[in-house]
């Protein structure tokens, strides 16, 4: 049992700590993918769902099509931007939580002792 305890301590401050970083990276990458951030940045100024108006020869028609297409691109831009911002918020949140975790990880045994001591403080 004592051997196992030492093995646990060795893992906690060795491979376990490394694993924590890998997991944090994995979660951030997952959020990035879930929000399709790369695809959204690449298509940032594309029309929303390809909704476009074909231009015709009249000046009025051309002007109208241009306005319509601008609106479509603007809608697309806003939706994408908001989604990217949501992803960034999530990543920041995960990042902060992860940072707290990373700081607490090596201190965990001390935190246990402190929490026991807390009964008497």
């Amino acid at each position: 049992m004592l051997m196992l305890f030492f093995e646990f301590i060795t893992w906690w401050y060795g491979r376990g700590f490394t694993e924590l970083f890998i997991k944090v990276g994995f979660y951030i990458k997952t959020i990035w993918r879930k929000f399709s951030v790369t695809a959204l940045i690449r298509t940032m100024f594309d029309p929303w769902r390809r909704i476009t108006t074909d231009t015709n020869k009249s000046l009025q028609g051309m002007g109208r099509a241009m306005v319509d297409n601008m609106v479509s691109r603007l809608v697309g831009f806003v939706v994408r931007l908001l989604t990217i911002l949501s992803a960034v918020v999530c990543v920041v949140f995960i990042g902060v939580v992860s940072l707290i975790f990373i700081i607490c990880w090596p201190l965990a045994p001390i935190l246990v002792i402190l929490s026991v001591a807390g009964i008497f403080l």
């Binding site: 929000f35 695809a39 929303w48 390809r50």
Partner: peptide, 15 residues
């Protein structure tokens, strides 16, 4: 198989 392109996958495609 949890990804499938994420929520913005089809936003550049038409209806």
């Amino acid at each position: 198989r949890s990804q499938y392109g994420g929520i913005g996958r089809d936003w550049s495609a038409g209806f």
